[in-house]
Each structure stands twice: as C-alpha cells, then as structure tokens.
Amino acid sequence: MATRVITVDRSLKPGIWPLVLGHWETLKNLVRTLILRQASTIEFPEKRRNVSGRYRGIHILTAREDGTPKCVACFMCATVCPAECIYIESGERPEKTIEKYPTRFEIDLLRCVYCGFCVDACPEEAILMSRENDLVGTTREELIIDRDRLMARAKLLDVGTGYHPSEHDVRRPVRIAAIEKLKQERGIGNSRPPRG
C-alpha cells in the first residue's frame, strides 16, 4: 500500500474565530454555575459526595460492650497486609475469659494501600473500614493512627460503615470454592456430611 502524505500549511492564520469559541465556552459555564446552579464541582469539604457502602476508607477498630477492643491480637491483619503498615503488640487481658488483646495497635496510614485485606482476614470483625477518605495531618507521626484513635472512630459507624466483611465480602465465595477444590484434589474432607 502506498503511503499517503498529508501536507499541512502551518502559515495559515486562525483569525478571531477560536477566540470567540473559547469565550463562548467560558460564558456558558458561568451561566450554568452562577445562574442555573448546575456546577459539576462541589464545595468540598462542606459538601461531600456519596460514596458506596463498600467504600474502603480509613479503618475503624470496633469495641465490645464493655468498651474494650474486640480485637484478640491474632496478627492476621498484620500478616496479610501487603503494605506491612499494621503494628501490633499483644498482652494478657486482666479477666481470663478471652486471654489476649492488643496493648498497641497502629496503622501507618501513609503506607496503607486501602486494599481491605485486613478486614477480610479478621476472624472477629474487629477491624472494619469507614467511608471517610480524607485525613489531614501536618506531621508524619500524626498519620500513624493508634489503637485509641482507631477505636474512637467507631462513632462513624452511625453514619454507615465502609467495607464490611459480613455484608460485602465479595471474595468469600471465591475462598470457599478454593477450599472445596483443595479437598477434591487431596481426596479429603468429611466422610459424611456434617450434622444439622
């Protein structure tokens, strides 16, 4: 196929026409925003967009009824975290029924990639995500959020949580299918179906 060569005349003068077009566009938006009130932007932070109920925002640590953390410091979240941003130290609970709880629980929000794996991994629904997506700090240390600040965020639950395993665990069927496949491959599993 022969090559087609296009010659462009760069000496052409555009004249006044593009200028008029540009001004017309500006004028249209001015009328739309100021007079018709149809702005495509919002007045952040006074106004906020609605985000999905599965939104993966800043974490929340939930509490038991007595106000102590639900977390049992099993380190599952810290283990699965791809950003390695969760730091936990564990200790003995004074009352012996649950044994273990986190004496320190810190998330470095500057390292966090908000993947939500920690929420999936948690066996206690102790860590959830909120819909909050903005957090301002003037130092790096401020954005390493500790146990008490994470627990104080539980009040955000009143306006609805973000990513929450029991409601939005989209990966659960995938996990169950993977386990079933493993059982078949290894020829293991229940000899009889479980009771009930």
Binding site: V72, M76, E99, K100, R186, I188, G189, N190, P194
Partner: peptide
Amino acid sequence: CPVCDQAGECYLQDQYQAYTLHDAR
C-alpha cells in the same frame, strides 16, 4: 488458634490442612 501461641507450628493445624479440612460435627 487466633489467641494460641502454637499457631503456625501446631501439628493439629498442619495435619488438618494436609489431611482432613473437615467441618466440625
């Protein structure tokens, strides 16, 4: 297992993973 220090080097865990994966009755 979440509060047990043996988790990760527990024969029960390892052998459950390898040989049964059964649901409790």
